[in-house]
Design a protein around this nucleic acid. Sequence first.
DNA 1: ATCAGAACTTGACGGCCGTCAAGAAATTCA
DNA 2: TGAATTTCTTGACGGCCGTCAAGTTCTGAT
Lengths: 219, 219
Amino acid sequence: MAEHECVQLVPIFSELGSEQLDTIESIVRHHHYPAGSTLFGADDPLDSLMIVANGQVKVYQLAANGREQLLYLLQTGDIDGEAALFENQRRTSFGEALVPTDVCSIRRSDFQDLMQKYPSISINVLNVFGKRLSQLERQTTSTATESVEARLANYITETAAALKTDTFKLPLKKKDLATFLGTTPESISRKLALFERQGLITQKPGKVIEINDADQLLW
Amino acid sequence: MAEHECVQLVPIFSELGSEQLDTIESIVRHHHYPAGSTLFGADDPLDSLMIVANGQVKVYQLAANGREQLLYLLQTGDIDGEAALFENQRRTSFGEALVPTDVCSIRRSDFQDLMQKYPSISINVLNVFGKRLSQLERQTTSTATESVEARLANYITETAAALKTDTFKLPLKKKDLATFLGTTPESISRKLALFERQGLITQKPGKVIEINDADQLLW
DNA sequence: ATCAGAACTTGACGGCCGTCAAGAAATTCA
DNA sequence: TGAATTTCTTGACGGCCGTCAAGTTCTGAT
């Protein structure tokens, strides 16, 4: 594997120099998870910060009625576990690798030491928090107040905008996308078919979607 | 007004000594907002951290269709929700005083200096945002996967548990509670009436609710 | 205390969307 | 590559709950 592997990937360490990254790399643990395997579950002790070195991880919760809610889709370079870095808490969500995934982890006490030594890290962590909070705030507002149609249209245009392309492949199975948007796979199928009938999008094999009229899609 | 007024109230400064609190107090600005007035709006520049010294503030977003989503209810001692304090960003939500409210604010640059000087502050801020994040995760899961009935029942039992009492007054108008739970005032009225018919709660004048059977309320 | 306005309750109605089911398409693995 | 399994699509149906409306209760200001 490469030199600073995961440590280099992560924005929270971006202000650090090469030797400092070496130091961090030396205290990092490496893990590999096959597709479909579980990284962590609710009630697990939350004792380390995880860095996705390569792959894709879905983070979800289970409601009391057993239904699943996808909260985050972690990509290469994303971190997780920052929510309780200084408190003894347990996890509240599940983590599952969607593809073969490499993960680096730093134990909580080690990370605390790092933050003492390099204050820029704490500020970066706070910013990661901020992004996650505002993403989640928007998600909450969206699922609570908008129709499935509007939420799906939003998701499509935002995903396309993030990739800077009009034609892209959905990064999730419809089942997972459904739990992310707070709906069902059937409803997604129907709404996509509707968008296609309206000429707003074109669906191609392999979960590929082409946007024909982004403005109209958002009303 | 008292000595350390708001600064003393806030958990994020709890590790600091009296003279340090004095220093902070000296850079704090005080504001008063009458009930119903706006503290901040979406797109306002995010240039200071706000501390609720006394009163109650609702923080909400507006969806594209104009509907309101209540995200947080800030009480005395709470700080406002924007975690993006270290990036040049704008606010994403609205803040409105529900009762006459005193607020102290610290300018962003001053707060950044404080965090450099007293690392305990950053750690406390991380913990506050961590709690807020997991609260919001649960809220998202709840509104996306559970029925109005289940969400309301949950809200009632949790509020009662937090107050350690079976009889309590709803801290919000039904209209605001509705936007918090992702429903409508009418539905809340109906479900409360249903719970009362089932003997699970008793409603009394003045938004007071008495829980008769907490277990049954959650199934 | 009185009154105007806001908040709440209750009923009727309808539409969105979740559920169940069955067949089609796509993906995986030997 | 081919078969087995998973995922997806489409239809029919029904219930939850949002909307509209009208009446009632509550609240707060004069």
